[in-house]
Simulated scan of single mutants.
Amino acid sequence: MMSLDLPPPIAAYVDANARLDVDAMLEPFAAGAVLRDNGAAFQGHAEIRTLFEEEVVAVRAIFTPDTVRHEGDQVVVEGPANGDFKGSPIRFTYRFTLAGDAIEALEVTA
C-alpha cells in the first residue's frame, strides 16, 4: 500500500478501520461530528458507532485510500473498500472536514 500524506485524524481512522476497531475508529471524531453515508446523516459518537458496527465491521469493510487532495476546507480521500458485501470492492470517496485534530464531518459516497 502506498503511503499517503494523510492528516493525523484521518490516518488514525484509516489505521483503525484496517483493524476493524470501532473504538479506535471513533476516537478521531469530534463529539458532535456528523457522518453522511449515501445521504443518511449520523450525528455524535453513539449514532456513528452504530453505523460502524452495522455497516463496516459486520461486513468487514476495509477502506484503502489511494489518493488524497484538498478541496477548500475539505480533505478528499478516495480508494477501494473490500469486504463481505455485494459488489466488493467498491470505490468510495470520503470527504473529511477537520477542526483542529478532530474529524468534524465526513461524507461518504460510492
Rank of each mutant, 00 (worst) to 15 (best):
residue 33 A to C: 06
residue 100 G to A: 09
residue 98 L to N: 11
residue 73 D to H: 08
residue 57 V to G: 01
residue 33 A to L: 06
residue 43 Q to R: 14
residue 104 E to T: 03
residue 62 I to K: 15
residue 39 G to F: 04
residue 26 L to M: 07
residue 36 R to G: 00
residue 49 R to D: 06
residue 62 I to A: 12
residue 21 D to W: 01
residue 30 A to L: 06
residue 49 R to I: 06
residue 93 T to R: 14
residue 18 A to S: 14
residue 23 D to G: 09
residue 54 E to T: 13
residue 80 P to D: 13
residue 93 T to K: 05
residue 101 D to P: 00
residue 88 S to A: 15
residue 43 Q to P: 02
residue 25 M to D: 03
residue 104 E to L: 14
residue 76 V to S: 11
residue 102 A to S: 13
residue 21 D to E: 02
residue 32 G to N: 14
residue 41 A to L: 13
residue 32 G to D: 15
residue 71 E to V: 15
residue 103 I to S: 02
residue 27 E to F: 09
residue 76 V to K: 10
residue 94 Y to R: 10
residue 77 V to T: 08
residue 21 D to L: 00
residue 23 D to K: 00
residue 43 Q to E: 14
residue 69 R to L: 09
residue 20 L to C: 07
residue 79 G to A: 03
residue 87 G to P: 04
residue 75 V to H: 05
residue 85 F to Q: 02
residue 57 V to T: 08
residue 29 F to L: 10
residue 68 V to K: 07
residue 99 A to C: 09
residue 22 V to R: 00
residue 24 A to N: 01
residue 17 N to D: 10
residue 80 P to M: 07
residue 87 G to V: 03
residue 26 L to W: 01
residue 55 E to Y: 02
residue 36 R to E: 14
residue 95 R to H: 10
residue 54 E to C: 03
residue 27 E to N: 11
residue 76 V to N: 09
residue 90 I to P: 03
residue 28 P to G: 09
residue 38 N to A: 12
residue 100 G to P: 05
residue 86 K to Y: 09
residue 34 V to W: 05
residue 98 L to D: 12
residue 81 A to K: 04
residue 42 F to T: 03
residue 29 F to R: 11
residue 38 N to R: 08
residue 59 V to G: 07
residue 68 V to Q: 10
residue 17 N to V: 07
residue 32 G to R: 12
residue 55 E to T: 01
residue 34 V to Y: 04
residue 34 V to K: 13
residue 19 R to M: 00
residue 73 D to N: 08
residue 29 F to T: 08
residue 102 A to F: 07
residue 49 R to V: 06
residue 67 T to K: 12
residue 82 N to L: 09
residue 101 D to I: 00
residue 28 P to W: 05
residue 27 E to Y: 10
residue 25 M to C: 11
residue 67 T to M: 08
residue 84 D to E: 14
residue 70 H to K: 13
residue 77 V to R: 09
residue 97 T to I: 10
residue 25 M to G: 08
residue 55 E to W: 01
residue 104 E to M: 12
residue 75 V to M: 08
residue 102 A to V: 11
residue 22 V to F: 01
residue 27 E to Q: 15
residue 53 E to S: 08
residue 59 V to Q: 07
residue 24 A to Y: 00
residue 35 L to V: 15
residue 79 G to W: 04
residue 46 A to Y: 00
residue 58 A to D: 11
residue 61 A to V: 10
residue 64 T to F: 03
residue 100 G to R: 09
residue 101 D to C: 01
residue 32 G to M: 04
residue 23 D to M: 02
residue 22 V to A: 05
residue 77 V to F: 11
residue 89 P to L: 06
residue 62 I to S: 10
residue 92 F to A: 05
residue 22 V to H: 01
residue 51 L to W: 13
residue 20 L to M: 06
residue 17 N to H: 07
residue 50 T to K: 11
residue 31 A to V: 12
residue 44 G to P: 02
residue 54 E to V: 06
residue 67 T to R: 15
residue 70 H to V: 15
residue 103 I to F: 06
residue 27 E to W: 07
residue 76 V to E: 11
residue 53 E to V: 05
residue 57 V to A: 10
residue 93 T to Q: 12
residue 68 V to R: 09
residue 47 E to D: 13
residue 30 A to K: 04
residue 39 G to Q: 04
residue 68 V to G: 07
residue 82 N to D: 11
